[in-house]
């Protein structure tokens, strides 16, 4: 049922021309997927998706919209090549799922490699009741370390791009630079008191 809602939302996103509506529908999409994740027993993931996907992403996109355009230009014709490519790829993927184990099958190979040891060990080795936490922070702690590195790199990239460090010469320099200082993505490089809030949330997530 929720999956059907998701499909309907996506069709609405494809059809919408007003970018503000598109961003709002993306928030709806994230929230619906969070509800679906709860159904699938992934409560931690649902929590993160609701906070990060429906919250921060939407705020970032709205910030971008205020700096750029509100409407999308309508293409003059229905593009044939993309429809073809997408249909072929989709058909190949569906063919791939035919061999997959049934949904919810407890004998599927994914559940039998290393996961039983994690579930056993979570109580004995780490003594944290939430198994997801014990895997995230302990068994696979290096994954999280790598993730922090990625987020840091992205943060540095965003700052370099938005502080106007100017690799390419800006044609409409002064006027645009002022509006950048007002973006929620701007951080400590910009004058104090104008940014930082959104950035901090993102790093904390």
């Amino acid at each position: 049922m929720l999956l059907t809602f998701l499909a309907v939302t996506v069709i609405a996103i494809i059809r919408a021309r007003h970018l503000f509506a598109v961003v709002m529908l993306t928030g709806v999409f994230s929230l619906l997927s969070a509800a679906l994740l709860v159904q699938l027993d992934a409560v931690d993931v649902a929590f993160t998706e609701a906070a990060v996907g429906a919250g921060i992403s939407t705020v970032l996109m709205l910030g971008t919209l205020t700096l750029t355009a509100r409407r999308e230009r309508v293409p003059d014709r229905i593009p044939v090549a993309p429809v073809l490519i997408v249909t072929i790829t989709g058909a190949a993927l569906v063919y791939g799922t035919l061999d997959m184990p049934n949904f919810g099958d407890p004998t599927a190979p994914a559940h039998h490699h290393i996961v039983p040891e994690y579930i056993e060990g979570s109580e004995k080795d780490i003594d944290v009741p939430n198994i997801v936490t014990s895997i995230l922070a302990s068994y696979r702690g290096f994954d999280t370390l790598g993730e922090v590195a990625v987020v840091f790199t992205a943060g540095v990239g965003v700052l370099l791009l938005l502080s106007g460090g100017g690799m390419a010469g800006s044609r409409r320099g002064g006027e645009m630079d002022e509006s950048i200082a007002k973006t929620p993505q701007a951080d400590s490089v910009e004058p104090p008191g104008k940014g930082g809030a959104t950035k901090g949330k993102e790093d904390g997530a």
Binding site: V45, E49, V52, L60, M61, E147, G155, V158, Q185, E202
Partner: peptide, 9 residues
């Protein structure tokens, strides 16, 4: 998810 929001930003 967190990496995804970083790439989006």
């Amino acid at each position: 998810i967190v990496v995804g929001v970083a790439t989006t930003a």
